[in-house]
């Protein structure tokens, strides 16, 4: 379960950043009082164009960033007050995640298992199960730097799931991947849903959202434009298809702002 209430993130802008963004404002609001709820056994998607505030939201959910305002509850734990406890419940995967190229998949997954405090016997069982599921036995002892993108993606998935998290946070997990490699992620999300985990993933690809999610929210310039079930989104559509409706909502919000 993820429960987000009035979540806000403001960043102080350096002079360099003020020049870069062509603004005189000293503070930039990346996420502005957003609220939503993700329930176990359902997939929640945070949809938005580039720079909407998706990654900042995901980073706050995974406790990398501290919110400026608002609350986050992860599996019953206040993630703002007790981030370390909340992290034990979260599996975090982003499309931009790098892996330690000089380690082997086995070393890397064992390392993260230990960081999550997984007992050695349980760790070995889970590794075996993941290697079987993702067909990783052949390359488990090769250096990660020498692996293909698809193999690396499998290592990332194993690393995310090694502590059997209750909540899984995917930040644009398929970005930069070809359709075949992205398929592993799609399978993983479906598998997490089937196991009753709480899943949230961010994306800017409507087709991906349509394929996977039960609930969704649209975010633009840090503000939530829509939040509800996929079904209610479809029922309230004014445009002929999902992508067109997404674009319509974003444009409408831009026009209102002007």
């Amino acid at each position: 379960m993820i429960y987000v209430e009035g979540l806000t993130k403001r960043f102080e802008l350096s002079r360099k950043q003020q020049k870069e963004y062509n603004t005189k404002e000293k503070i930039a609001t990346a996420v502005d009082h957003i609220s939503f709820e993700c329930t176990p056994g359902r997939v929640f998607s945070l949809l938005g164009p580039n720079g909407a505030g998706k990654t900042t939201t995901m980073r706050m959910l995974s406790t990398i960033f501290k919110p400026s305002e608002g609350s986050i509850t992860i599996a019953g734990i206040d993630a703002v007050k007790n981030p370390q406890e909340a992290r034990k419940k979260i599996g975090f995967l982003t499309g931009s995640t790098g892996l330690y190229a000089r380690l082997t998949p086995n070393e890397l997954i064992t390392y993260f298992g230990k960081l999550y405090g997984v007992e050695t016997s349980v760790l070995n069982e889970r590794k075996e199960a993941l290697y079987n599921l993702l067909d990783m036995h052949e390359f488990q002892n090769k250096q990660i730097g020498k692996l293909s993108t698809g193999m690396k993606q499998k290592v990332s998935i194993s690393r995310t799931m090694i502590h059997d998290p209750e909540v899984v946070v995917f930040d644009e997990p398929t970005s930069g991947l070809d359709v075949i490699t992205a398929e592993n992620i799609i399978k993983l999300i479906k598998d997490c849903k089937d196991k009753g985990k709480t899943v949230i993933f961010s994306s800017h690809i409507m087709s991906e959202v349509d394929l996977l999610c039960d609930d969704m929210a649209i975010i633009h310039k840090g503000k939530l434009l829509f939040s509800g079930t996929m079904e209610s989104f479809r029922n309230s559509m004014q445009a002929p298809n999902l992508t067109a409706e997404f674009i319509r909502i974003v444009h409408e919000s831009q026009n209102q702002a002007l």
């Binding site: 995974s62 990398i64 370390q84 992290r87 034990k88 790098g98 892996l99 190229a101």
Partner: peptide
């Protein structure tokens, strides 16, 4: 630079 720090910071290690 390699993008590994983000994952490390999501682990329950202070």
């Amino acid at each position: 630079e390699r993008g590994t720090i983000e994952t490390l910071l999501t682990t329950p290690v202070a």
